[in-house]
Design a protein around this nucleic acid. Structure first.
Lengths: 197, 197
DNA sequence: GTCTATATCGCGATAGAC
DNA sequence: GTCTATCGCGATATAGAC
């Protein structure tokens, strides 16, 4: 029985190393410009070994994205508490998103660039779509609780604005004052909502 | 002299066919997933001929993007008239952008996806950057004329929101009610600006 | 479970005939 | 100006020894 757990450990170690190396490289060099050789070198394993754990390069990518999404889920969970003031939750959602993107910029660049290549990667399309739908649903319910007459439109616009800000940030890097712009957005947002009520 | 113009015509015909085929394919399949063979087949020419007119696949891409940008410039020119009401110009800018994107969705998908791969394409980076800077400059001057105390922030936020809306549209396709959301944005925008003054 | 060696393929790009 | 034929490379993926 000993040998069984040892195998499992080795297995775990290799898989983790491969995923970590691949995420690092995909994020920095892009998916297409990263070869299996690159990944193997970075992970300290042989090229062939990767295919013991993943059937293809694309499957590896999907697995990585899946992991990252699951790990990000906890943050959202907290904000779903129905007792919190919805407009504060939206502001918090915006700020937390900035923190997430800033602390993992390369990963989010990867995700965003992949969103435009889903025709060539059907497996990812599902993952990304589910993620987006969850976010929109959360925003819709928040706007509903704020008494909005157009919760869907409000939610889409909110989401689009946040995504747009991130796109600018990802493309312009530190030239772009993310924090200022997000604060500006939140302020304007609150102002207009308060004036309306 | 006759033969000279005939050559020029043939030349023109081939170049046009290549560019048209490449744009179509790049936009649908993505730049990396489109091979020279694909382009040649679609354009009805041989693989070799492409290299008579373009030194590389990347040069072909750059040429296409350059063309499209020049053709879109006229629309912006009209809006730079300093006599127009700046807030109306912004609304018009938003609406015209929607029309542009909708009428050439695949091209804009291509452009947007390329924005995240500029590390591998330095030549394009310059083109895209110039384009963005022009747009921001125009928006900044409009907000200044509106008496904004924070024209740069306003311009960035405006641009980011529009881009974000387009990103959603490009990813979600017709599931996403672009027109509704843009109108919603313009309405909110006008409301808050009017209330403030 | 891991490695090395290799098969196989398709790509971007070139050479040279017509 | 256009074509066919081909090079050379690097990629993904597999086979089989240890």
């Amino acid at each position: 029985m000993r040998s069984k757990t040892q195998s499992a450990q080795a297995r775990q170690r290799s898989v983790t190393a491969i995923k970590a190396a691949a995420l690092e490289l995909f994020a920095h060099k892009g998916y297409h410009h990263t070869s299996i050789s690159d990944i193997a070198r970075e992970a300290g394993i042989s090229k062939g070994l990767m295919y013991n754990y993943f059937n293809s390069k694309e499957e590896l990518l999907t697995s990585i994205v899946n992991d990252a999404m699951n790990s990000g889920e906890d943050i959202l969970h907290v904000l779903e508490d129905p007792l919190l003031d919805p407009s504060l939750v939206l502001a918090e959602l915006a700020r937390q998103s900035v923190t997430m993107v800033k602390s993992n910029l390369h990963y989010w660049k990867l995700i965003t660039s992949l969103a435009f290549q889903t025709e060539a990667m059907k497996s990812l399309e599902v993952l990304l779509k589910n993620q987006r739908e969850r976010n929109i649903k959360l925003a819709v319910s928040l706007f509903e609780r704020m008494g909005s007459q157009t919760p869907l439109e409000d939610a889409y616009l909110f989401g689009a604005t946040m995504d747009g800000i991130f796109v600018y940030y990802m493309v312009l890097d530190d030239e772009f004052p993310v924090d200022d712009i997000v604060n500006h957005f939140i302020n304007q947002f609150f102002t207009s909502k308060q004036q309306r009520s």
